[in-house]
């Protein structure tokens, strides 16, 4: 017997993705008491032993009814909103979140089915954002700051999107944590990125820059920034958030600077490789094909193209026994070799 009788069991105006698809889970979640325990109990013995909390069968339907009634009120408020108001979309999204926030099915899915949520639904985006802010966002900012990616590349960042990164070096897919030290074998092919938007997004354009701010600049006895990869005008939305080989093969104009793997020279230390994701206002104009990689001025580029940084990622690499092979693969000359120790005095 299901407790749901009101707005949360009707799918004329609501998306069917707000309901649990698994029938067993749904009945377990929406029945006032659980005759044979929750679905997570597998063995017959534990199912038989399970006893529902005393009085839950009376309280649960009552609580559900109260929450459902509130949601119904919010839905009627959405309908009475002024559609011509400039803040209509914002207000609507806020109310839609409030209407579904406490729906047990939604809460269950947001907690246990994070990988298969329908990101077109504001309430799922809300829950995804909360989990991202709780860990990944803080981790990213900590890595960007301790590795001084900010301010060495761009002044600062207020992350708006989650950026996930993986390399196709082996037959497995594994997302990489920001700041991980990767070998040259891993980075030899262009990576795939996932850009997860938490606002409503239907076909926004994005730019991705991959830069190495630790290229030695011998003339200045300092470091310079090299542009390793540039991708522009990539169309992403809530449903399609990947920047991968498939997408780039279909739109060949997107890649304005071809991928060059980070090939560090011997004794130049660990190189930070920063990935910057920008949201564009319109098509990118000041990004010609075959832009000069060396002495890349990322701040100038961002200013010229009026880009807003919305997300970032960082990995680290250093010289290893395979670097020369990768150099040969890309037709690069042999790497230079530097002294192992840094000199304790100024060179000039």
């Amino acid at each position: 017997m299901s407790v749901s009788k009101g707005v949360w069991s009707k799918f004329v105006k609501r998306s069917p993705t707000l309901a649990l698809r698994n029938k067993a889970l749904r009945t377990a979640l929406l029945s006032p008491d659980l005759p044979s325990g929750p679905v997570s109990l597998k063995s017959k013995a534990s199912k038989r032993k399970y006893q529902s909390i005393e009085g839950l069968d009376q309280i649960y339907p009552l609580a559900y009814e109260v929450l459902e009634k509130r949601s119904e009120d919010i839905y009627s408020k959405i309908e009475s909103l002024d559609k011509n108001s400039p803040t209509y979309a914002e207000q609507k999204e806020e109310l839609e979140i409030a209407a579904e926030k406490f729906n047990p099915e939604v809460v269950y899915m947001a907690e246990y089915m994070k990988n298969s949520l329908d990101r077109t639904q504001p309430v799922f985006r809300h829950y995804l954002k909360k989990t991202w802010e709780g860990y990944s966002k803080m981790l990213l900012m900590q890595r960007l700051e301790t590795l001084a990616v900010i301010p060495d590349t761009l002044p600062t960042l207020e992350p708006k999107v989650e950026v996930k990164l993986k390399f196709p070096h082996n037959n497995q897919d594994r997302w990489i944590e920001p700041g991980t030290l990767l070998s040259s074998n891993v980075t030899k092919m262009p990576p795939s990125l996932e850009v997860i938007e938490f606002k409503e997004s239907t076909g926004d354009l994005y730019t991705v820059l991959m830069v190495d701010p630790d290229t030695p600049d011998l003339a200045q006895d300092s470091y310079s920034t090299t542009l390793l990869w540039g991708v522009k005008d990539v169309k992403l939305s809530n449903t399609d958030s990947m920047i991968d080989a498939k997408k780039l093969m279909q739109n060949e104009d997107c890649e304005f600077v071809e991928y060059l793997p980070p090939v560090c020279e011997k004794n130049t230390g660990k190189h930070r490789i920063a990935f910057w994701v920008f949201r564009q206002d319109g098509p990118l104009e000041n990004a010609p094909k075959g832009l000069r990689r060396e002495f890349f001025k990322i701040r100038q580029f961002v200013e010229d193209n009026k880009l807003t940084p919305v997300g970032a990622h960082v990995i680290r690499t250093l010289w290893d026994r395979n670097t020369e092979n990768v150099r040969k693969m890309y037709g690069l000359p042999e790497g230079r070799v530097f002294t192992r120790e840094r000199v304790p005095y100024l060179k000039n």
Partner: peptide, 15 residues
Amino acid sequence: PHFDPRKRRFGRFLI
């Protein structure tokens, strides 16, 4: 300046 790139020294010689 707080938001400028750090000024760093490479400090190694080419062999």
